[in-house]
Amino acid sequence: MTGRTVVVTGANSGIGRVAAQVLAERGARLVLAVRDPEKGRQAAAGMTGDVEVRRLDLADLGSVRTFASELTEDVDVLINNAGVMIPPLTRTADGFELQLGTNHLGHFALTNLLLPRIRGRVVTVSSNGHRMGSIDFADLQWERKPYRAMTAYAQSKLANLLFTTELQRRLDEAGSPVIATAAHPGLAATNLLRSEGRSRARHAVERAVSRLMSQSEEQGALPTLFAAVADVPGDSYAGPGGLLEGRGAPTLVGRSAKARDRALAARLWDVSEELTGVTFPRAALGSAA
């Protein structure tokens, strides 16, 4: 990875921190894109190599635009890793439901803003939870129906895969050599689960069960690294190869029928452009299409 620049969102903890550390050890220049720069600096202090910390709040499109405008160097790999999971109903700075706003729309805007400077690939971290997901275009932001945090999470993770599919289609159409890939960590013991809105006892039980059934952060980061550096095709999806894709060595895995729906992916892309005000930079990629 010597001579290559990698941007990892949410790299101050969990599988993002592990992936960043491994890539830095292999000679890459790392940019840790994190909401809390102090936590980012603490994570960077435990890494070897060329590591820089920059502030990025994916729940604020203003922050996304600032980050993208200030990152002027070429990027070999963008890893869209940051995410939130099943918090109580919360709104982003732009009024989006927090999980869709952070997990999908923030990364959607970031990727398109950086795309003219990306030379290699875009990796977006999804989840096996996408299989329970559906895209409710009538109420994407949970403004009318009763809020269900896990359903909202599944929607955001399905959106990650649909984004990858449509991004690859557009890259191919533009004649770009960049590829879009996705990955999921299996059942990894990380701090993704937020404790807000749940009792301490329930949160403690959830964490205990998670650690008993899951693999380590180090193992959970392997599919992300596989998607970032292995010889894989565009629109591929990496995950653990073990039972129910919960753990094991990384390999290419399947996805739900909805996640393979190209018409759904195209529609979500159009809606995402309208919501974020960010469009695919076709002209900057040199396409005549």
Rank of each mutant, 00 (worst) to 15 (best):
R260Y: 10
T224D: 00
A45M: 08
S195W: 12
V123W: 05
Q215M: 01
S127G: 04
T151D: 13
L98V: 10
L222V: 12
R117T: 00
E273G: 04
V205C: 15
D270H: 12
A82P: 01
S13R: 11
V122D: 01
L222F: 12
D270E: 15
G95P: 10
R282C: 09
T279K: 10
L110G: 01
A93M: 07
A174C: 05
L61T: 04
V271W: 01
A289Y: 14
R131P: 10
A82C: 06
R200L: 11
V75W: 06
A249D: 11
A44K: 04
R194Y: 15
T111Q: 00
T66L: 13
E173N: 13
E38M: 12
S216E: 09
G10M: 08
P87S: 05
L268C: 03
E196Q: 14
R247P: 14
A109D: 00
Q42A: 11
L89N: 08
V51W: 03
A284H: 09
R282P: 13
T165Y: 15
L193I: 13
G10L: 06
E52W: 11
A182L: 06
A263E: 14
A283I: 13
K145Y: 14
T5I: 09
Q42G: 11
G175P: 05
V7H: 05
T279D: 09
P223L: 01
Q155D: 06
F163K: 00
D50M: 14
E73M: 09
R144I: 12
F280R: 00
E217G: 14
L158Q: 04
L268A: 01
A33F: 02
L162Q: 00
E206N: 08
R65Q: 08
P240F: 01
A288K: 13
T190Q: 01
A183F: 06
P240M: 04
W142I: 08
